[in-house]
C-alpha cells in the first residue's frame, strides 16, 4: 500500500511535468545537458537525488522497479531508494534485471543485456565532462556550443605521457552521435561499450541540476587515439563465486595476509549464474540452498 500522504511518486505534478519536458529535450538532443529546476529530496545530495527525480517522473504504477548501487541490489543506497518508491509510488520491485521495467543505477550498467522496453536511469554526480578541466560554466557551455573538445583530448594525452596509457578508468568521456561529449557518470570504462543498447538511458544530476539522455541504438564512441585505442578493462580474474570471466569484478580483501577474492559487482548476475550451477574458486555447490 502506498503512503497516501504523498502524491504518486512523491513529487507534485508540476515538478514532474517540468522534469518530463527536460527528459524529452534530452532525448531529442542526445548528450546535451538540459538544465532543470532540481528539487530538494528527502535524502542528501550525492545519494542519487537526480536519479530519484528522473525515476519519479518516469515511473507508472504498472512498472517493476530495480535499484543497483555499484551493481549491488543490497547496499544502503539501493535499499533505501527501492523502499522510497515502494512507499510513495506503490510499484513492484525486483532484484532481477530481466524482470525490471525501470532500473535506477549508481555507477554500473547491469551485465545482462537490456531490452527495448526497459529504461535505465543513472545517478550522476558531476554531469559536465569538462568541469575538472574548466571550472567556469559559461566557458564549458561555450565549448559545447562550438564543439570545442580539444581540451578533453589533451587530458587523455597527458594520461599517456604520464602513465604510458590512458589511465582514466571510470567516467570515461564519450562522444554521442558525433556531436556532444558526455560524461557517462562514474561507470567503469568496462561498461562504456554497453551504452549502445536497445533501452532508453536517462541521466539525472540533482545537485548540478542537469538531465541528459541517450535514446536506444545511439552511436556512443569512447574518446581515444589511433595509436592508443580505447580498451574496456577489468580485473584479470574470474569471479571467485560464480566463475564468470566476462563480468566486471570487485576486489575484496579477506585478511591481513594479502589474501583477496574477486567477485562480480553485479549481484543479480552472480546469483543467477550460481543458481544455474556455476561455481567459482571459492564458491560451494549448495550455498544457495543453505542460505534459503
Amino acid at each position: 500500500m502506498s503512503d497516501q500522504n504523498y502524491n504518486f511518486a512523491y513529487l507534485d505534478e508540476q515538478t514532474k511535468r517540468m522534469i518530463r519536458r527536460a527528459i524529452l529535450k534530452g532525448l531529442a538532443i542526445p548528450g546535451y545537458q538540459v538544465p532543470f529546476a532540481s528539487r530538494e529530496m528527502p535524502m542528501p545530495y550525492g545519494w542519487g537525488t537526480g536519479g530519484v527525480q528522473v525515476s519519479a517522473a518516469t515511473l507508472t504504477p504498472d512498472d517493476t522497479f530495480k535499484v543497483i548501487d555499484q551493481g549491488a541490489d543490497d547496499t544502503t543506497n539501493a535499499v533505501s531508494i527501492r523502499k522510497f518508491f515502494e512507499r510513495t509510488a506503490n510499484v513492484a520491485t525486483t532484484e532481477e534485471t530481466a524482470k525490471a521495467d525501470v532500473i535506477q543505477t549508481r555507477h554500473r550498467i547491469p551485465e545482462a543485456e537490456l531490452r527495448e522496453d526497459q529504461i535505465l536511469v543513472y545517478q550522476v554526480p558531476i554531469p559536465e565532462p569538462l568541469r575538472f578541466l574548466e571550472p567556469r560554466e559559461t566557458e564549458t557551455r561555450k565549448m559545447h556550443a562550438l564543439e570545442e573538445y580539444g581540451l578533453m583530448h589533451v587530458k587523455l594525452y597527458e594520461d599517456i605521457s604520464q602513465h604510458g596509457a590512458i589511465a582514466t578508468s571510470y567516467a570515461y568521456p564519450v562522444k554521442v552521435e558525433g556531436r556532444y561529449v558526455m560524461d557517462p557518470s562514474p561507470i567503469p570504462k568496462f561498461d562504456n561499450p554497453k551504452m549502445d543498447m536497445p533501452a532508453i538511458q536517462l541521466f539525472g544530476a540533482g545537485r548540478e541540476q542537469r538531465i541528459y539522455a541517450v535514446p536506444p541504438y545511439t552511436k556512443i564512441v569512447s574518446l581515444d587515439f589511433e595509436d592508443y585505442p580505447f580498451e574496456a578493462t577489468k580485473a584479470e580474474h574470474a569471479c571467485d563465486l560464480c566463475g564468470s570471466t566476462h563480468s566486471y569484478l570487485d576486489e575484496v580483501i579477506l585478511d591481513d595476509q594479502g589474501n583477496r577474492m574477486f567477485v562480480c559487482s553485479d549481484t543479480d548476475y552472480c546469483r543467477s549464474r550460481r543458481a544455474a550451477g556455476h561455481v567459482g574458486r571459492l564458491g560451494t555447490e549448495n550455498e544457495l540452498e543453505a542460505s534459503a
Binding site: F8, R20, I23, A28, T58, T60, P61, I200
Partner: peptide
C-alpha cells in the same frame, strides 16, 4: 486520475520521442 494518467501518457510520449 491526474498523477496516474499523466504518468502513462508521458511514458507514451517519451517512448515516441526516443524511437
Amino acid at each position: 486520475a491526474p498523477a496516474i494518467d499523466a504518468a502513462h501518457a508521458f511514458r507514451a510520449a517519451m517512448n515516441a520521442m526516443a524511437r
